[in-house]
Write a protein that binds this DNA or RNA. Structure first.
Lengths: 345, 345
DNA sequence: TGACTAGTTCGAAACGTTTAGATTAGCTTT
DNA sequence: AAAGCTAATCTAAACGTTTCGAACTAGTCA
């Protein structure tokens, strides 16, 4: 900017005024400045600007996995929304590691992000303190955290799972395997209560041996399903609390020479784009990813636009059961587990 | 930092020296500074630091779509690599829009990113000029661009498609539908030459009517497949040049009451994690996403670590044909297109 | 004619760091 | 005791902006 000022024979203050349109600059000087800018190929240094202005027009976004299609979709929507609003997005993936995420949040705050969107991977001792200290608005998405009272948008996990399990019960299933993640994040807790209540509601006893917990990855789903399907009285249906784990579960079914839905019905949390073109077409609980992303972005943008003092807002969206063909009525089960032509290769 | 200095009764220079370990600071002052930092909850302002140092420890990453599993995987790997190296990643998605991407690159450069990773969505007039002006290292990934001679990592697209098409030809297919994206990006051009050469090699005439071009989205694949399968002499196999389009193609097959592989064999570019658990298990060309991400990151990190003058490097990786069960020998085709029990719902 | 106003332009401080070079204090050395 | 080191600390400039308030120039009004 100094160079531009010199070339145009004006002061830097005038160049700044011209660029930002803060004061009227005469025709003559405008011309000279414009030309100098072009000749020099000047670009305003956003870092210096940020330092002075105290705002970076950048937000931080931290999610557990970007390869999980749910988060992919949400991140994509959020990214677009902030793009439109003229903000850049710094993306961090934490691989479900709490220390990792704390570290990343620290990094983002050091970089003076204007706001933070967090899908929290664990509990919130550090988060709580940080959020209070750093004076930036935070929006939690997908996962709430005890004691942190920021804006948040979550799903009605309880209700969604209640419906899914009820659907299985109505099909006649009584032994429903349940594959979950650890209970240190709210969705897993809430989904579990949905399972409980659906059973209770139908008068079916809860059986702890039908519940397997993993770390949300595909491999965990595989292990869990292997165990469940090896029980002497194996479940007729399996529910997986997220998408990567259901892939593992399907592999377990395949490797055991079973097939879905003939031998075991399957439902999973989170939909994916090609669920209805391959077989079995998985019955899933679809989260309204578009809405989740948009609401999350708009909550944060609202704060960034100055609405700092409003009480914290909690948005709860509804999931939707997408019934396809991965679940069968239980009486139609093949009684003898035949090795069906499951796959070659 | 000023506050810390005052509280510890030292100068800011000393605080800086202590924090960065640039000079030895006496036991006594260290203690006072440490305490002051804790009491105040001081965090170093990375923006001010960047301004002074001229480096932001941030890189920019711009890709067409993050929902395409190929890019998801690559982004994920790159993100992890830079995370480990202590860099933040600014992510932009361009939705295949050239102006959009130019604008985003401008934004990233304004923010003084230390480096840029670009999966280019079109040609490179603007890119070329920008890259030369802005003095930051650039690595191109997946797509090369004419006239831009930066480091890049790409796939041997020609060879990969040659193999895939040859595989179909060996199965007896002669009419192979080809769904591509526009030819303004190198992978689409190179994949097409692979198709050409495979046909040539097998002595099969090239038929322009079997080639349909779209904009890489699912909807384009749907339209293209619809057209191909409505030809009076419809193809016995379809190749899709990317993943989203094959989903559309599969939907078209389903909607026409056809089935894969019985009525039409299908191969697509880009693998996805659950390709082998659902049916048909798609035969795909798997890109080594892990390697692509790692190589891309390491090329850029190498430049960032000071190796600025080395001649530009071009890494070419090999794809791998993942044969599953979405392709059948052509003589086994059902001669009369029966409406197979494709799906309910 | 002198004071006031409106419209432009500019000088300089400030944002929060880093760092070169100056200063100081405490030891050695001769 | 003076000179020379070394180690620790500080002063002040710099990074590239924005912005407050001052200054200048015309034009307007009493």
């Amino acid at each position: 900017m100094l160079h531009v000022a010199e070339a145009a024979r004006v002061s830097v203050a005038t160049v700044s005024a011209y660029i930002n349109g803060t004061t009227t600059v005469s025709q003559e000087l405008s011309g000279r400045i414009e030309q100098a800018i072009r000749e020099i190929g000047y670009k305003r240094n956003a870092i210096a600007r940020s330092l002075k202005l105290g705002t970076t027009r950048t937000i931080g976004l931290t999610v557990p996995h970007i390869t999980n299609p749910f988060f992919t979709d949400v991140v994509s929507v959020i990214q677009q929304a902030f793009d439109r609003a003229g903000y850049a997005v710094m993306l961090c993936c934490t691989d479900e590691d709490l220390n990792n995420q704390d570290e990343q949040i620290r990094l983002l705050l050091d970089r003076m992000v204007d706001g933070l969107i967090i899908a929290r991977v664990g509990d919130g001792a550090y988060l709580k303190e940080t959020v209070e200290r750093a004076n930036v608005p935070v929006v939690l998405v997908d996962r709430e955290v005890d004691g942190v009272d920021s804006d948040r948008v979550v799903l009605d996990n309880h209700q969604a799972v209640f419906e899914a399990i009820t659907y299985l019960l109505e099909l006649g299933h009584r032994r429903i395997g349940y594959i979950t993640g650890a209970f240190n994040i709210t969705p897993m807790r809430d989904r579990m209560t949905g399972y409980h209540e659906a059973l209770l509601n139908a008068g079916v006893a809860f059986d702890q041996s039908l519940v397997r917990s993993g770390d949300l990855h595909e491999a965990d789903g595989y292990t869990a399903a292997m165990q469940l399907l090896s029980l002497h009285d194996r479940p007729t249906a399996i529910f997986s609390a997220n998408n990567p784990m259901v892939v593992g579960a399907m592999k377990a079914i395949r490797d055991l020479g079973l097939s879905c839905p003939e031998d075991v019905s399957v439902i999973c949390f989170d939909d994916f784009p090609w669920a209805d073109v391959f077989n079995p077409q998985l019955t899933t609980i679809a989260q309204p990813v578009q809405a989740i992303g948009e609401q999350t972005a708009s909550l944060l943008l609202d704060r960034l636009n100055g609405n700092r003092e409003a009480p914290s807002r909690r948005l709860v969206l509804k999931g939707r059961l997408m019934v396809r063909n991965s679940c069968r009525p239980v009486q139609a089960l093949t009684s003898v587990p035949t090795v069906v032509a499951a796959s070659s290769t």
